[in-house]
Amino acid sequence: MAYLLYGSAYAVADAWPRLGWPGGAGVFVLAAVTFAACAGGAVFGGPGYLLVVGLAGGLGLHAVAPYTGLAALFVIAFTVPYRLPVRWAATLVAVDMAGITLVSLAVRLPVAALIGVTIGIGYCSILAFLLHQITLTRQLAESRVREAAQAERTHLAREIHDILAHAQSAQIVHLEGARLLLERGDLPAGLDRVNRAVRLARSGLEETRRVDWDA
């Protein structure tokens, strides 16, 4: 933000003595629009068309007062991978590099400075694309880890449910048999069925614990 503000203010200060009040006022408006577009589109994540406005404003400032629009152009080059789809981002970077080259030639910028600025914008944009790709790759990896963890939890829950359902079904069968036997007065057989139901309950609990420990 400070770099953008400095470039905009310096453009106005440089152009006003040379162009007078009408020209200076025009440069002031151009600088204000450029600063607002870059801040809104790049810093605060506004709509993508603000980046186009900021790019045009940066080239205009560079034409009026050489070097003053570079802040906007570098901000645009570094921001577009995060704000636009890859195809549109690459197109805007190409326009950025072509525009800075043409404007620099028009204002008779030294060749060394022209080459340095163009290479700098290209390097900045490549670095931004790489950093953005690394961020996307990390987010994708984290998403897959979360999905795998969720799938494992779902599998464990289903397995525990199956174990408990099987154990409870068998317990109900034995307990129902025990009830019938006790109603007929067959106490030993009824107690045997109750003991079987208890063993099934303990076995189901142990299997459930073993599933939790294995996880």
Rank of each mutant, 00 (worst) to 15 (best):
I76Y: 06
L105S: 03
D96H: 07
V95F: 14
A90H: 13
V64Q: 01
A65P: 00
L61V: 11
V103P: 03
G116L: 12
V75M: 09
W88V: 10
A113S: 04
G120F: 04
V111R: 01
F74E: 11
A94Q: 14
Y123T: 15
S125E: 13
V95C: 15
L127Y: 09
P66W: 00
V64F: 01
G57H: 10
L84Q: 10
L105D: 02
P81D: 09
I121S: 03
I115Y: 01
V103N: 06
S125H: 05
G122V: 08
V95G: 09
W88T: 09
A63L: 08
P81N: 09
V53A: 12
A113E: 00
G54A: 11
I115A: 02
L51H: 03
L114N: 00
V111P: 02
A106R: 03
A77C: 06
Y49C: 09
L92Y: 10
R108H: 15
A56E: 09
Y49E: 11
L114P: 01
R83L: 03
A94S: 15
A89K: 03
A112Q: 00
D96C: 14
Y67R: 03
G116V: 08
L50N: 03
G99R: 09
P66N: 04
L105C: 09
T79K: 08
T101W: 10
G116A: 12
G54N: 06
L61T: 12
A94Y: 13
G116H: 00
M97C: 15
V80Q: 07
A56Q: 08
G99T: 15
R83G: 08
V80M: 07
A77T: 06
W88H: 13
L50R: 02
I119C: 04
L114M: 00
T118S: 11
F74V: 07
A94G: 15
G57C: 10
V103Q: 02
T101P: 05
A77N: 05
A65W: 00
A56Y: 05
G69F: 06
M97H: 06
A98C: 13
A89D: 04
V93T: 15
F74D: 05
G99F: 08
P85Q: 09
V107W: 03
V111E: 04
I100E: 08
I121R: 02
A98Y: 10
V103W: 05
V75C: 07
G57M: 13
V80S: 07
A113G: 01
C124K: 06
L73K: 05
I76E: 08
G54W: 04
Y67S: 01
Y49H: 12
I115D: 01
Y67E: 00
L73N: 11
A94W: 10
A112H: 01
C124A: 05
Y82Q: 13
V111M: 06
L102N: 13
S104Q: 08
Y49W: 15
H62K: 03
L105K: 14
S104E: 11
A106D: 09
F78R: 10
H62D: 14
Y82S: 15
V117C: 01
V95E: 12
M97A: 14
L50E: 04
I100N: 07
I100Y: 06
F78G: 14
I121Y: 02
G60M: 11
V52K: 02
V86I: 08
L127S: 15
L55R: 10
W88Y: 13
